[in-house]
């Protein structure tokens, strides 16, 4: 009988933990595991190019189950293509809804133009009807409340949520919702209402301590915002319910030196409450009127600082956003713009694929009608959905391919012709080390609580 040969998966990445342990990750299976210093040489030997033959030891058998070792008859290219095709399943849907396109802030780096206010009644009816009509075929629905500033249209969110909750209850659909908000109107009372509508994840931006934040993220017409947002967050912390708040810190040359003192402050206020998590990103030239004047960081500095700040926060008791771990899972970094069953619904019923190019004609992919039907230009949808790995040999050879499928940011590829790679992929060793560190800290914390 021919002996079986096992080869290292082409989708593996490895890193080293602070205590010398080996960390392994596979972007097709999503598995992440660590190995003791004793196990490490055995595992490293099996992961050599020629792999390993015959009966597997107790140490190596789990590597097959986790996808780190694959049979020499496995077509890993086909696996990636199949994973990509699985995004076409019709029982999941992700809608990004803009209950208003107005905003009470005028952030220096914002790319939006705030063309209109609250979603019109006939479009609200269209959203309700569209989701109700989809009810029979859906197993999973997720809604992202976006804008503008969605909390300016709190009543619209309530009206739509009540209808959506009826539909998902009637059809037994798993439903999750999240919100990107500036946090200014996120009072504890309204927060409780949002939780009752199943909105449980919030992205809220604070760009440093008061003087730094208020100089970049101020009210339309001027006016500070830091104290109000932080006051809301402190009040929300006292609510004994499950939720996740991602505190996003946008950094550039102006506030680079203030991020760590700010993380010290956040650690004092929210440290060791796992519901509050950090998400650090460099400011980009995202299409706003101040783009040319923004003091953005050199990309090499930015790509290093993201993880330096994330680790600094971790050392202050602030976990990193769960977005980061989910971004390295299979299909986890595919942008919604590249997913066939994802649409952005504007306040006037205009349909888009991308949230960063509202004024581009190629992003105007259709209209939502009051009766719940979508009038869609499928050629434009195809333009967003069919790019990516299948035309890019670099992506096809990449260890991260199953996670992003070459579609991390279709807009970047359209505008520059270059390959869009994620911050996580570029520093995968750092990211794996931080995931290990966060897991280890959590386990230590749980052990302390038990004893």
């Amino acid at each position: 009988m021919e002996t079986k040969r096992w080869l290292p998966s082409r989708y593996n990445a490895m890193s080293q933990a602070d205590n010398g342990e080996l960390i392994l990750y596979n972007s097709y299976s999503g598995a992440i595991a660590s190995f003791t210093v004793d196990e490490k040489p055995i595992v490293m030997s099996a992961l050599k190019r020629d792999g390993v033959s015959g009966e597997l030891s107790e140490t190596l058998q789990p590597l097959v189950e986790s996808g780190f070792l694959v049979g020499d008859d496995v077509d890993e290219d086909a696996r990636a293509r199949f994973l990509h095709q699985s995004l076409h399943r019709t029982d999941t849907m992700h809608l990004i809804v803009m209950p208003t396109e107005a905003c009470n802030f005028r952030c220096t780096y914002c790319y939006q133009t705030f063309p209109q206010g609250n979603m019109k009644p006939e479009i609200r009816e269209g959203v309700k009807q569209f989701i109700a009509q989809k009810g029979n075929s859906l197993q999973h629905l997720s809604i992202s409340w976006f804008g503008g500033e969605p909390m300016l249209a709190f009543d619209v969110i309530g009206e739509l949520s009540e209808s959506i909750l009826d539909t998902v209850a009637e059809h037994n659909i798993s439903y999750s919702a999240e919100m990107t908000t500036n946090g200014y109107y996120l009072t504890p009372d309204k927060f409780r209402s949002l939780l009752s509508w199943n909105v449980r994840r919030f992205m809220i931006t604070l760009d440093g301590m008061k003087e730094f934040h208020d100089s970049r993220r101020f009210l339309a017409g001027g006016g500070e915002t830091f104290d109000t947002i932080v006051g809301n967050l402190k009040a929300i912390k006292e609510i004994d319910e499950e939720f996740e708040i991602y505190i996003r810190i946008n950094f550039d040359e102006d506030n680079l030196g203030n991020v760590q003192p700010f993380l010290d402050y956040l650690g004092e206020q929210f440290g060791h409450d796992t519901r509050f998590q950090t998400f650090c990103r460099p400011v980009g030239r995202w299409g706003g009127e101040n783009d040319e004047d923004l003091p953005i960081c050199d990309h090499r500095v930015a790509e290093t600082k993201i993880w330096e700040f994330t680790e600094y926060g971790l050392d202050k008791g602030l976990g990193m956003s769960s977005i980061i771990e989910s971004a390295i899972m299979p299909s986890g970094s595919v942008c919604y713009a590249a997913k066939p069953h994802s649409f952005v619904i504007g306040a006037d019923g205009q349909l888009y694929k991308c949230t960063c190019s509202f004024n581009e004609e190629f992003n105007h992919v259709g209209h939502l009608l009051p009766d719940g039907t979508m009038d869609i230009d499928y050629d434009k949808v195809a333009f967003w959905v069919t790019g990516g790995e299948d035309k890019d040999t670099g992506c096809q050879a990449c260890f991260f391919r199953p996670a992003c499928q070459g579609n991390h940011c279709p807009l970047y590829r359209i505008r520059t012709g270059k390959r869009p790679c994620t911050f996580e992929k570029k520093k995968i060793k750092q990211v794996l080390r931080l995931i290990w560190k966060q897991n280890t800290k959590l386990e230590d914390l749980e052990a302390i609580e038990r004893s």
Partner: peptide
Amino acid sequence: MRVLKPAVSPQQAT
């Protein structure tokens, strides 16, 4: 081997 994140199928992944 200590599992930090278990393997998932393509179906679960989406």
